[in-house]
């Protein structure tokens, strides 16, 4: 059952974005709409799965001293595959994500999992770990995007690649476009992390009820 645990830990307990605090740049830059976040998440999951699989398969062949360049070549190969596939089949999404597709190479999550996990574990566990971490990353992107997209545009689930204009939640004249800018990315992630900390603190406080300190400020 350990393979299942490797899968589950990435989803929330060791969520790469909210707990390990890795891969911040694509998280904030591409979570402008749910569709963009989902696209970025799936692309990164694919790369993570491929790199974990191959690093784990080759872990006995790769010399210890040059392992980082080897990992980078494996990762860059999968990123190139994703880049070409996306520009062929989802051109609108590819245009919106832009430079962040080749930048998956330097997404710390992928190199960190190759180094910390896949290089030391067997193939099954590595694949499960890659899948779990990838889905955890996608989940984090979707959470941020579900907050940002409605505030910025007044609609949700806008998907031009599939010819779907999204569901209107409120008139666009009340929307705050700033939230889809980088400003909104920094701010949303900051408040979401503070909220997660707040919930964790409160849980801890409830556990040791003897503590008389004041409740942490909620967001």
């Amino acid at each position: 059952m350990s393979a299942l645990n490797e899968f589950k830990k990435g989803l929330w307990a060791e969520s790469p974005v909210f707990v390990l605090l890795l891969g911040m740049c694509p998280t904030m830059a591409t979570s402008t709409t749910v569709m963009n976040g989902l696209g970025m998440g799936i692309a990164a999951t694919f790369v993570l799965l491929g790199s974990n699989l191959f690093v784990s398969l080759l872990r006995k062949v790769i010399p210890d001293k040059i392992r980082i360049p080897c990992f980078i070549v494996v990762i860059a190969t999968f990123v190139t595959i994703v880049d070409l596939m996306m520009s062929a089949y989802l051109p609108d999404l590819h245009k919106v994500l832009g430079v962040f597709v080749p930048l998956i190479v330097v997404n710390c999550i992928i190199l960190a999992r190759a180094e910390a996990f896949a290089y030391k574990n067997n193939v099954l566990n590595s694949v499960m770990d890659g899948l779990g971490m990838g889905i955890g990353f996608t989940l984090a992107l979707i959470i941020l995007a579900t907050i940002r997209e409605p505030i910025a545009t007044g609609r949700i689930l806008n998907a031009p690649d599939f010819g779907f204009g999204g569901l209107a939640l409120f008139p666009a004249k009340f929307a705050a476009g700033l939230i889809s800018q980088p400003v909104g990315g920094f701010m949303t992630l900051g408040f979401v992390l503070a909220a997660i900390n707040g919930l964790a603190n409160r849980k801890k406080m409830r556990q040791d009820a003897a503590c008389g300190c004041p409740a942490p400020k909620e967001v």
């Binding site: 920094f186 701010m187 900051g190 992390l193 503070a194 909220a195 900390n197 603190n201």
Partner: peptide, 14 residues
């Protein structure tokens, strides 16, 4: 307490 460190840094960056 909840804002200490990382969250506050992000909000200041914003």
């Amino acid at each position: 307490k909840s804002f200490k460190g990382f969250p506050l840094t992000l909000i200041i960056t914003a």
